[in-house]
Amino acid sequence: MNKKEKVKKIDEEIEELKNYKLLNGLKTKGLKQIRNLLLKREFKKGEQVFRANYPQVVLFFVAEGDIKIYLDNDGEELVLTHKVKYEHFGEMALILESTRTASARAEEDSTLLAMTSKDFEDFINKNPSSGIILLKNIGRFLSEMLRKNNEMMKNLQNKNNEKEV
């Protein structure tokens, strides 16, 4: 009885993982392993997740809540985006051993699931087929971000040109 409930709970958690955009297309077996690797973190409203220039070692999935991603522009906060349920942020940590490019703060009480870059690498080595899907997803997100940034640059230049005229 107790064990049955436990198994059911695990199955539910794995089903839940299928909703995450980054884990799109992964099979149950891969998700089962990813569930074991995720570290649950609870953040209070207003609590800092990380700041720009902190070393980056983990990616965060948002399981609950609202995380504000922003740039510190001379004390003024330039809000880039909000990450909500089933989204993720900090995926660059998995690819690049470097520092954070933006800051993140919980806008309300949030539950995050962290995945370390080492676990990510181990997972890919252990499950190459799932790893390819995961890497492709990450690549897609980064490319989309680049496209968005390029368009933003174009818009900015157009605005500048209009001003000059």
């Binding site: 570290l39 609590e47 983990v58």
Partner: peptide, 21 residues
């Protein structure tokens, strides 16, 4: 992994990534 998840629960958010390193 289960042991690891338990231990990490004890670490405050501020020290989380440092602990991972």
């Amino acid at each position: 992994e289960k042991f690891r998840q338990y231990i990490y629960k004890l670490i405050p958010n501020k020290y989380f990534e440092l602990t991972v390193i």
